[in-house]
Amino acid sequence: MTLSRSETVAMVKRGARGAGYSWGMAEEIAAACATLCANGINAQPALSQYLSVIDGQSHRLAIQSWPLTQDHVCPFHLGCFIAESAQDGDVLTFNGVQSAVFLLPYVQRLAAIKGRNLHLRVGDMTVDVGADYIAGDIILDAHGTVVISTRKREFEPLCASPSYPVQYCEVMDRLGQKTMVPESDESRAKGAGA
């Protein structure tokens, strides 16, 4: 069984919010996850693990100052910032990036904004990223120092067809439950009205 894209987005958004991200960041995380799925990258296991670890502590990995000085940084906060601020430079280096696979959607946006083909390297993970492709050796638990540079594409895109696997739903569901309000006598009485 697979999920639909809309089910995936809804589930991840709830899960990210349940883990403590703001609503706006939760929207970003859901969109990033969908982008990875659309590029054939099944990052659900990594996302479930990441959100489980960060549950209730996400603010600690938010960007504390710029330039970065912290030991650990959230890939979603960092990704939003580097894409939205349209970071310049032939080579960008960021230390302490957790679950770096989640930077890829934002590097893709940066590539689109800059009109360049980019390359991301972290440990043994090396990936080419353009406005319409993500291609390379994906390592889901890669983390540490990320180097983003300009490079023409050398790898072939991973997968042409999107995939929204149903794995690890229970983690997202558990986190997502934290965004919901248990029934009370009042709510039970009123329901949806219908």
Binding site: Y21, S22, W23, G24, M25, E27, E28, A62, I63, W66, H77, C80, F81, E84, S85
Partner: peptide
């Protein structure tokens, strides 16, 4: 970008 870096709680509404 710099505002949202410091205030992620306003991201959904700024969008």
């Amino acid at each position: 970008a710099h505002f949202l870096r410091k205030h992620p709680e306003h991201r959904h509404i700024l969008r």
